[in-house]
Design a protein around this nucleic acid. Structure first.
Length: 419
RNA sequence: GCCGCUGUUGCAUAGCUCGGUAGUGCGACUGACUGUUAAUCAGUAGGUCAAAGGUUCGAGUCCUUUCAGCGGCGCCA
């Protein structure tokens, strides 16, 4: 649709009417397709005139004409129309110039045709592609975990329950435990799959259904984990910045932010984070979880992705491995970015069966509910680590979107699940 | 879970403080005009003011409840 490579040739365009400006002697039709938009002119003496008059915003059509450079046209190129063949004459399109957030959310199925959503979806595609590229380059195997699960990964309060014939099942919150199973066969594994959380969060960074990029691999420690995560993040940012330059420009997003992402990232321990934040938040003592406000303060200071690691065991899940000489500290790490806060959580997993059972009991969980998970420690246990990253949070940060709902085509939030 | 905000025609809004027959822009329709950039000009149609109840001679406006949506915190990726 940029026209330049086909200048002065007769071309055929299949697309939709994006804008229409009508005069007595001349009609301007701006057409859109998946690649972009281009202005087409229809003269009164043309055989296409009556169809051009008839056509409405969002009508689909095939248009034939000569492409040529014209400084007066938006984009610098336009098409002198010779013929139009209307495929689907559109009724009056409901989305116009004046629109509220609420209205375009109700019209999501049509709003996805907008330039903004078109561009964001292309960037999203590139994020998926670049992520897979990196995992594959590091010889990871992509696997397919289940979405229906019979037990919780961590506490049960944020699980979506559902009726499965005559039984109670749940939607998965994380594929981690399933990656751990597959790891014993394939070693380095990853997946990009949905996760579901029944958290009644009312923020611009929560979805009830989001895409979770998770990796798990054997014989890894905290340093391996952070090195892999920063390598992945760097590759995604660099690769997207190279391949989505046009999208970033049209969306008005800052591509230099991505170009600046390079391993290694700043890394601070939880203890250091507390000490840094203490002057601003005197109530913050060792043992308390970092609040969103605290994370934001740190993120503004760093101005780029960074890690916080070695959290108190008490505030982390039962499967987190702890230090032998410091059982009160868990080998857990969060990656944070400005404005969004946490975009990834990972850690070393407890590989000792007895300690794992103790941790379960300490958190009020019944080890019998996790028999298959304990089996993994019975039969050839190995030290291992893994992480999960929220894909939409990553995209929100990259494009500096106002709300996470625009990072996914069909957002599900506590109040919205249509269409 | 806690707190705050919003709801007026297909869309976007004014009017609400301080009660007195609901106004504008976009879109639609009719016409004019034009190398336009979601053009411009003139005209036409379009509203049980989210719902219910209350106060009042009189409620879009004040009070109560409900519904819907948005956001902040908590929780998390």
């Amino acid at each position: 649709m940029d026209g330049c490579c086909l200048a002065d040739q007769t071309i055929q365009i299949r697309g939709w009417v994006y804008r229409k400006r009508e005069g007595k002697e001349l009609i301007f039709l701006v057409l859109r397709d998946s690649t972009g938009v281009i202005q087409c002119t229809v003269k009164k003496n043309s055989s296409a005139w009556s169809d051009a008059q008839k056509v409405t915003i969002e009508s689909s059509l095939t248009l034939e004409g000569v492409a040529h450079e014209d400084k007066r046209a938006p984009g610098g190129y336009e098409v002198s129309t010779e013929s139009i063949n209307i495929t689907g004459l559109a009724e009056t399109f409901p989305i116009g110039k004046d629109k509220s957030e609420e209205f375009i959310r109700d019209m999501r199925h049509l709003w996805l045709r907008s330039r903004k959503m078109n561009l964001v979806m292309k960037v999203r595609n590139q994020v998926f592609e670049s992520a897979r590229e990196y995992f594959n380059s590091q010889k990871y195997t992509e696997v397919s975990p289940p979405m229906f699960i019979s037990a919780a990964v961590e506490g049960g309060s944020t699980l979506f329950g559902l009726k499965y014939f005559d039984q109670q099942l749940y939607l998965t919150q994380s594929s981690q435990l399933y990656l751990e199973i597959l790891m014993f066969s394939l070693e380095k594994v990853f997946c990009i799959a949905p996760s579901f959380r029944a958290e009644k969060s009312r923020t611009i960074r929560h979805l009830t259904e989001y895409w979770h990029m998770e990796g798990e691999w054997p014989f890894a420690d905290m340093n391996d984990l952070m090195a892999f995560e920063e390598g992945l993040m760097t590759h995604i940012c660099q690769s997207v910045s190279e391949k989505c330059e046009k999208e970033f420009a049209e969306l008005g997003a800052d591509i230099n932010k991505l170009k600046a992402v390079k391993a290694p990232f700043p890394k601070i321990t939880y203890k250091e984070a507390i000490e840094r934040l203490k002057p601003k938040n005197p109530a913050l003592d060792w043992g308390a979880d970092l609040g969103y406000e605290d994370e934001k303060v740190l993120a503004e200071e760093f101005g780029q992705p960074f890690f916080v690691y070695d959290y108190p065991t008490e505030i982390k899940a039962f499967y987190c491995k702890t230090y032998q000489d410091h059982p009160e500290i868990a080998m857990s790490v969060d990656m944070m970015v400005p404005r969004i806060g946490e975009i990834s959580t990972g850690g070393a997993r407890e590989d000792n069966k007895e300690i794992l059972i103790e941790r379960m009991k300490a958190q009020g969980l019944n080890p019998q509910d996790y028999e298959w998970y304990l089996d993994l420690r019975r039969y050839g246990t190995v030290p291992h680590a893994g992480f999960g990253m929220g894909v939409e949070r990553l995209i929100v940060w990259m494009l500096d979107l106002d709300n996470i709902i625009d990072a996914i085509p069909f957002p599900r939030t506590t109040r919205r699940f249509y269409p």
